[in-house]
Amino acid sequence: MSPTSFRIPSGAVISRWLLVVVAIAAILWQTQLGLGDLSTSSGWLLLASFLFLGLYGARKKVPFLPLGRVSSWLSLHIGTGLIAVALFFVHTGGRWPSGGFETTLWFGFILLAASGIVGWGLQRLTPSFLHSGDPLFSEEQIPREIAIILQESDQLLTETSPLGSSEVLSHFYRDRLRPWLSAPREQWAHLIDSGRPRLRLASDFSEMKRYIDLEAREPFDELEALASGKLELDRQHAWHRLSHGWLLVHLPLTGVLLVTIFVHVLVVRSHTEGAL
């Protein structure tokens, strides 16, 4: 993997974030000195940072507006997210939650933060693996490409074709190869960069070679090339899924947590006002 996928923020960026952290710490310290309620002030700051984090999604929806590049917004999103984690621990006082609602809120936030951190790591780790093949396909293109490979393979194996006339090969195609060609397979093996899928494919084709007439050698090689193409599609599919799969946790959780936090604020406010 190329080291360029890891970029260290510049000194100016780091110092700006340090300033934000110091400012927040100063607000909280001032609250404590003034005998204010630390959990309330940290709660409001947490809510503000949570809403700001949500703005990232909105920014992505309007790329045509001159609001700065989305990459800058992502940096803000990550920085704010890390600050929100710190605020969360200040807000909760590092205590375990009690009660069903509080537990949901607590674990929801931890899961959301964890999915964000995992996602951040994956987005920096996966590009080099994702793009190590050629040609490149987007996640949406892969099912279509697989369908094309399947169609072309079927054409090579028609009853009248030189390949289709071999009974052994027809069986191999129908029972083994075709099911494998029809959908992404062996995703985990590709993620751990295992050579097994390629070895197995090579072995299968090598075993079949003896049953192929000389005149069927060319279509047989074509079939093997199609299978190799499918192997590359499987590999890219696996990395695409890993690269974007974390969003299936991160995005729905954001929605759920937004509602839960809203209820939490309402409940706390009504209790506070009741007490007063």
Partner: peptide, 28 residues
């Protein structure tokens, strides 16, 4: 830069939204 691209296709989606839902380039 393929060492940074995660294949999210946000570039293609952005192109589509600014061109009446017709992306004007291929990410290849």
């Amino acid at each position: 830069d393929l060492d940074r691209c995660t294949g999210c296709d946000d570039c293609v989606k952005a192109c589509a939204v600014t061109h009446d839902n017709n992306p004007r380039f291929l990410r290849r």
